[in-house]
Design a binder for these strands. Structure first.
Length: 556
RNA sequence: UGCCCGAUAGUAUAAUGGUAGUACAACUGAUUUUGGUUCAGUUUGUCUAGGUUCGAAUCCUGGUCGGGCAACCA
């Protein structure tokens, strides 16, 4: 631990604050999701950041649901969000809801009205938009801007009492219609929505806007460092203005660049679209960049935390290569996944000089990366085996270290075999490969002195179990689906899911556990799908192994 | 056209006036009973023009490029 890791800009700010004795050195952050969708890998970045900051500086982190818009929010989302955060390995200090502060927020609004800093406006949405002017032209006041404090107080009370229909009136801050920052041109504070809220039920028919809820909630909780994404930068002036007028705890807002990743989209709105239009199975489809999707795909919490650590935190717009995420999960699984053999695209291999009916039990370690191999399992061996179709070539090039007429390979954990013949069907497809084995070449007791370049995996025909295996590829076929001219969905990768109905797996895999990662030797990392059952195993591919041979072939 | 934010290898991210470093990617080689892993090595970078300074990625000025801002969304 000699290398001192450099600080990101937020850590620098916090360390400076601590040095200056701000808030007596206290650090309190928060993660503020709106319960209107599932969490994705971009949220994971924010979660790791906020909880990480809290932990690093001996502070705490609240989980606060930003539930000010009952139209889109649901309890289902609340539960999934809590589950995902826990699964990622973080524990919040307090579980809070902006809706818990509705009464306080209402009081704040009254305070603002009394100070002459807010008014009730009867204009329509279009009228208000027009009255705000444009970035280059100042706005103009609506006829309601000059209402008296008493009038505003009474009207606002009536709004709360439900005397007006949706959209009839809003409460606006009275700031500056000519401000170069559009967010300061009398922003909306409250709107009328006669909608059932997932927590407050029908108690309220007016709901605060983000700008009149977020900063105030931060302040109520005495959040010291309120970290959000770049698009809120222009809101910061308003955030500070409201806190100053209300004379409440001065939380401070800081902004960092959200995560973008190649070959996917990263907004709840678009992910919801993919779900609703059935381009994927659901929020937890293994191709989705959601936490639940990654979990079902076989990603581990550690690999995601590690990823968030490596991508860094800055204010520059960025697009992370999805290859880095894949590197992180391979790095983790290589050290932890138990090795097993599975043949996904089978052809039969017959060992012509191995006695019919003979069987033997071989041994394979669970994990060669660990001293002692973490134990092992028995692997039945016999005369007829399934091997991978791609491990045989009729006319093999020089660098093909697998089977072909006259070529020898090692069968993993077993014997060296030499190909002598093969059988084709009427269509010219190879159906069987005939080999002879070298009896004294058995793994662990090889006295043959033979050296072969290649080792291939296999499964005994008579002992094999079957499973459905799902192979996943990137959801989109272009790096940036949003950069396309038309609909981003036109760049969906039609081959993002390949289902192998009948793969042959070694018998031990029948006892595979949900949530555990396995390496199918030479193929990749796999995990049991949530829909898998004892009578019908279903595996999802988490990620393939690095494949330098495929690269070689591609190069020609 | 107003305001705001940003710009360092292909992608990210450090260097806080003093040797441009790290990770991923790419490439070469070694090892290997996984064409995996591991190990060794190579290639590639400060947007631009001025200025300040003994010295600038860093400070200043102008420009260029990218992003954001005019939801009764957050």
């Amino acid at each position: 631990m000699s290398e001192e890791r450099s600080l990101n800009f937020l850590e620098e700010i916090i360390e400076e604050d601590i040095k200056l004795g701000k808030h007596d050195g206290r650090v309190l952050t928060r993660f503020p999701p709106e319960p209107n969708g599932y969490l994705h890998i971009g949220h994971a970045k924010s979660i790791c950041l906020n909880f990480g900051l809290g932990k690093k500086y001996h502070g705490k982190t609240n989980l606060r649901f930003d539930d000010t818009n009952p139209v889109t929010e649901e309890v289902e989302y609340v539960e999934s969000i809590k589950n995902d955060i826990r699964w990622l390995g973080f524990q919040w200090d307090k579980e809070l809801y902006t809706s818990d502060y509705f009464e306080t927020l209402y009081g704040y609004a009254v305070t603002l009205i009394k100070k002459g800093f807010a008014y009730v406006d009867d204009s329509t949405a279009d009228e208000i938009a027009a009255s705000k002017g444009t970035p280059t032209e100042p706005g103009t006041p609506t006829p309601y801007r000059s209402r008296t404090v008493e009038e505003n107080l009474a009207l606002f009370e009536d709004m709360r009492a439900g005397k007006y229909p949706d959209g009839a009136k809003v409460l606006r801050a009275k700031i500056d219609l000519a401000n170069p920052n559009m967010h300061m041109r009398d922003p909306l504070l409250y709107r009328i929505k006669h909608t059932h809220h997932h927590r407050t039920g029908d108690k309220w028919c007016i709901y605060p806007m983000y700008d009149f809820a977020h900063g105030q909630s931060d302040s109520i909780e005495q959040i010291t460092h309120s970290v959000c994404t770049l698009e809120f930068i222009p809101h910061r002036e308003l955030y500070n203005w409201l806190i100053a007028q209300l004379e409440i705890f001065p939380s401070k807002q800081y902004e960092f660049a959200r995560l973008n990743m190649t070959y996917t989209v990263m907004s709840k709105r678009r992910l919801l679209q993919l779900v609703n239009e059935k381009h994927v199975e659901g929020w937890d489809d293994p191709r989705m960049p959601t936490i639940s999707g990654l979990r079902r795909r076989g990603y581990t919490p550690a690999s995601i935390r590690n990823f968030c650590d490596r991508i860094g935190v800055a204010k520059r717009e960025n697009v992370i290569d999805v290859g880095l995420l894949e590197f992180c999960i391979r790095e983790d699984l290589n050290k932890t996944a138990w090795r097993r053999m599975a043949v996904l695209d089978p052809i039969k291999l017959v060992i012509t000089n191995y006695p019919e009916g003979q069987e033997e039990v071989l041994h394979g370690e669970n994990n060669p990366e660990v001293e002692g191999g973490e134990g092992g399992r028995d692997i039945p061996f016999s005369r007829e085996l399934w091997i991978e179709r791609e491990d045989f070539m009729e006319n093999a090039p020089k660098k093909f270290f697998r089977l072909g007429p006259g070529l020898s390979v090692r069968l993993k954990h077993a014997y060296i075999v030499t190909c002598e013949d093969f059988v084709k069907d009427a269509d010219g497809n190879v159906t069987e490969v005939h080999c002879s084995y070298v009896a004294n070449s058995k793994s662990g007791e090889d006295t043959s002195g033979m050296k072969v370049k290649g080792t291939i995996h296999w499964v005994s025909v008579g002992h094999a179990k079957t499973a459905t295996v799902r192979i996943y590829d990137r959801l989109f076929s272009v790096e940036n689906p949003m950069a396309t001219d038309g609909d981003f969905k036109s760049t969906l990768n039609p081959d993002s899911l390949q289902i192998i109905e009948k793969a042959y797996i070694e018998p031990d895999l029948a006892g595979a556990e949900l949530g555990k990662g396995y390496q199918f030797i030479r193929k990749g990392y796999f995990t049991l799908d949530t829909t898998s059952g004892a009578d019908h195993l279903v595996f999802n591919q988490t990620v393939g192994l690095r494949d330098t041979w495929a690269k070689e072939v591609k190069k020609g």
